[in-house]
Amino acid sequence: MFRKPLGFASRGALTALFVALLSTAAFAQAPSTGLGQSWPNAADVSVSPHYHVYVFVREGIRYIQVNDLNGTVRGAVALADNVVLVLPVGADAQYVTTQSSAQSVASTTETVFSDANTRITATPTSTGAVQIHVASTPASVPTICTNPANCSGAVKGLPGG
């Protein structure tokens, strides 16, 4: 039985299709590098016009970084298995709190990131620092908000969500 080899145009079309599929898969995932950078090569998923928020994923751990409008890294956290770890990254790292930490809500508190499992707020202080608060809710399947249009101030399952 004879097999007809694929023509040049057919191989080129298959190669282009394969490259397109790989590119689409790469864009669907959060980047794994850039944490701590002022302007990382990552999508800004902030729901606030006053902050930039970037999500990174590496080895199943989500890293969320909050920058101000000037690109100054204010703080970052790591999330895995419903555990939030404050990272020693950013100008206001010492002001990052978690849901188990005490938090007072000020009128200037603003939600900067929210998805099905995590809500992050930022509150400017009188000293110029930014208080960042992270609240994480248990979930069976972690989700990543990579599209700002789908990230909202309301957490699904809670009143108003």
Rank of each mutant, 00 (worst) to 15 (best):
Q65T: 05
R74A: 07
V77C: 10
A13V: 06
P5F: 11
Y95V: 01
S46K: 07
V84D: 00
Y95F: 13
D81W: 12
N70S: 14
F27L: 09
H52N: 15
G153M: 05
T111D: 09
P40T: 02
S48G: 07
L14G: 07
V155E: 02
Y54N: 09
V47C: 07
C145F: 02
A16I: 14
T143C: 01
Q94Y: 04
T72Q: 14
N82S: 14
I120Q: 01
V57S: 11
A122W: 03
T121L: 08
P88M: 06
G60Y: 08
L85R: 15
D44I: 06
A149Q: 15
Q99F: 11
T137V: 10
V130C: 01
H50W: 10
R58I: 00
P31I: 03
P138M: 08
T109D: 13
A42N: 07
L35R: 00
V86S: 12
A116C: 03
R119D: 11
V57H: 12
P142T: 11
L85F: 10
V77P: 05
G160N: 08
S32P: 02
H50Q: 14
L6Q: 13
N70H: 12
A122Q: 12
G34E: 04
I144H: 02
G90F: 00
L87S: 09
V77S: 07
I61V: 15
P5Q: 02
S48Y: 02
A154L: 08
A154G: 07
L6N: 01
S140N: 11
S104D: 01
I132C: 03
I144E: 11
I132K: 04
F8V: 11
D115L: 05
N82L: 00
A78T: 07
E59N: 15
A149K: 14
P159V: 08
G157V: 09
Q65A: 01
L17C: 09
T143I: 09
C145H: 06
F8A: 04
T98E: 00
G60R: 06
G161P: 04
V155P: 01
S101Y: 09
G34S: 08
V73C: 06
A154R: 02
A42P: 06
A78I: 05
F27D: 03
V53W: 09
A20F: 08
A13T: 12
S104R: 09
T111R: 11
R62N: 08
G34T: 02
N82Y: 14
Q29K: 15
G7S: 15
V134Q: 03
P40E: 07
R58D: 11
D44N: 15
E59V: 11
V84C: 01
I61F: 05
